[in-house]
Amino acid sequence: MKGYNFAYLDEQTKRMIRRALLKAVAIPGHQVPFGSREMPLPYGWGTGGIQVTASVLGAGDVLKVIDQGADDTTNAVSIRRFFARTAGVHTTTRTADATVIQTRHRIPEQTLRDDQIIVYQVPQPEPLYRLESSRIETRRMHALADYGLMHVKLYEDIARFGQISISYDYPVMVNRRHLMSPSPIPAFDNPKLHRMPTLQLFGAGREKRIYAIPPWTEVRSLDFDDHPFRPIRAPHPCGLCGATDSYLDEVVIDDRGGRLFVCSDTDHCAERRAAGHVGTEGLKEAAE
């Protein structure tokens, strides 16, 4: 596209971000400050993720963008189109075909490979944010791996609700050293972080932080021995493809309180249906 550098950001900025990314990869889970730029979209829409994507994207890459698992929501469509125009890269909705996947709040169901990169959009990189208001203090806690406070939060949950009630943005320990926010993905996705073959990059634009999990890194969800971490999933099969092992969205389908549980990962669901899997809703359609 004329008048713009490849992938929108100028080369110096991309270098600066790549340096931050290298440092982030070298210290898994550690938040690296970076000079976040103004981007042509508002904070909260993925300004951090889009800068990371812009910095790692090459001309031969194939980009997939999802928002809450879906390829067809406004945010996903806009960012995909943004890079198609500013970088001229191919885009796709198929997880298997993508080399770079930018995501907001989900990890695709399909197992990712070591020749792919996943970029997470992060609203709040500091996992201790709600527990300790002082940034100086949280930085010190990270420096000294002093994470008793995070467990206090889990303790409080069990004391109050009988179980750990965190259902998304569930804190993890990366490489047995750094406490990290996995971004607001459902706790259901947390096990996928562990020893993932894919390079995982996290960008927080407003908070100006970058962090990373290198491939095959140990990532453990915090828990207690007698209250182990349990990924929660709605106890239903997908209404469209019948999957019983995917993360589901609850959709209201009429004004009489009718509900449908469907895969949040739209590509996953579509591929399953293409392969002949059918859910209860699909069977109804077939009957009509």
Partner: peptide, 10 residues
């Protein structure tokens, strides 16, 4: 303080 020392049994 127990949790800070690594206690992990609720």
């Amino acid at each position: 303080r127990l949790m800070a020392q690594g206690a992990r049994h609720y």
